[in-house]
Nucleic acid binder design. Sequence first.
DNA 1: AAATTTTGTTAGTCTTATCTAACTTTTTAA
DNA 2: TTAAAAAGTTAGATAAGACTAACAAAATTT
Lengths: 219, 219
Amino acid sequence: MPTQTNENYLKALYYLHQKNSAISITDLGKEMEVSKPTVNDMVKKMQAKGWVKYEKYKPLQLTKQGLREATFIIRKHRLSEMFLSQVMGFGWEEVHDMAEEMEHLKSEMFFDRMDEILGFPTKDPHGSPIPDKNGNFVKPDYRLLSQVEIGKKVVLRALRESSTEFINFLNNKEIKLGTTMTIKQIEPFDKSMTVCYTTHTDVILSHTVCNGLLVEQLT
Amino acid sequence: MPTQTNENYLKALYYLHQKNSAISITDLGKEMEVSKPTVNDMVKKMQAKGWVKYEKYKPLQLTKQGLREATFIIRKHRLSEMFLSQVMGFGWEEVHDMAEEMEHLKSEMFFDRMDEILGFPTKDPHGSPIPDKNGNFVKPDYRLLSQVEIGKKVVLRALRESSTEFINFLNNKEIKLGTTMTIKQIEPFDKSMTVCYTTHTDVILSHTVCNGLLVEQLT
DNA sequence: AAATTTTGTTAGTCTTATCTAACTTTTTAA
DNA sequence: TTAAAAAGTTAGATAAGACTAACAAAATTT
């Protein structure tokens, strides 16, 4: 059974893998905000437990078991977010940090009951898929708004980041899941985009913001 | 801010204080299931943090601050039990262990929202008082069934232990909070009691069981 | 009051998770 | 293709939370 710290390393590895296939000790250290020797040590321990595969100077890999563990932590995180939002009435901008704590609770019953109460949801409040009790889930292949061309129409389906700060920004701009946007212009200099949606015309979104929005392309 | 381990020591001290005013290093060690040197060390650390007062070979004391911290942990525990039982539909025999984990969550918002959803309850599913947001609560002075005399009539108001095992025993005997019982007989040899309640006549309860039941005396 | 038992303390060790400083390997760029 | 930069490793330390073995102090019993 992974410790809480182990769980955080597993989750970090999982997220890094989503973007990048070759994860370095340094990458993981940055994600976890710890020094390289700390990661080095931890990786050895986690390899001994069978969760990661590592050879000196080579990229890190999650084993099948490690992936399984990571998936269950993510299940617990996303179910918690969903429960906090749907049952306890918290806003989508508030749930991430609380779920970050709750994901380490060990009681399976607790999460299974949440799942049941929520009617076995497949998406969390930020649009991310929730693995089921067996660890299965479908990863829809949305694209980043930042990668969409000018003139296209898209629907916001998920966020790649769920920090309170980021979501407060979206709330201010009245952007939510399901919002349909048309890309009017892309500034070559800073890659910022001018978009239109609902009653808003010509809203400028920075590249950083566009990089956090996962969309489904309509046209 | 106390660590999770600190919180458990504080809670243990709090519970020991309820029965016994003079708590020894040994007592705390037994409650926490750790060795005496471990307690000794920990007590020094917790004294440095201002939660306990201790002089060599003298009894342990919770400081005002320590008592405050303990009260908030108990608030979190009991609110969790209430939420698990009232909102999530768990049985009173299932909630203790889950609440034992949940009580260490740091988010105040989470517990305050629970409190609100539950309508600011003052008792948990086992009849124990729930401290409010300021740490205040009334400790009703029930007496132990084991201390009641023969012939008296009592109502079960709270449990002094909330383990699944103990409550499963009560469930089997169809004893719940609010059950009115009459004490028919007390066996001098082993202090077991013969009681009558609802449709049950002449049920024998061991001293151990009677010691776990907090009752209000009617006659 | 002395002997015994219980209680508490000291000293030294372990594990987990972290650090810095210094060194080595690999990669990249001149 | 070698020099510089980046990445990774080793060694030694620290803090929290635990242990055992051995000793000291206090309380209890005879």
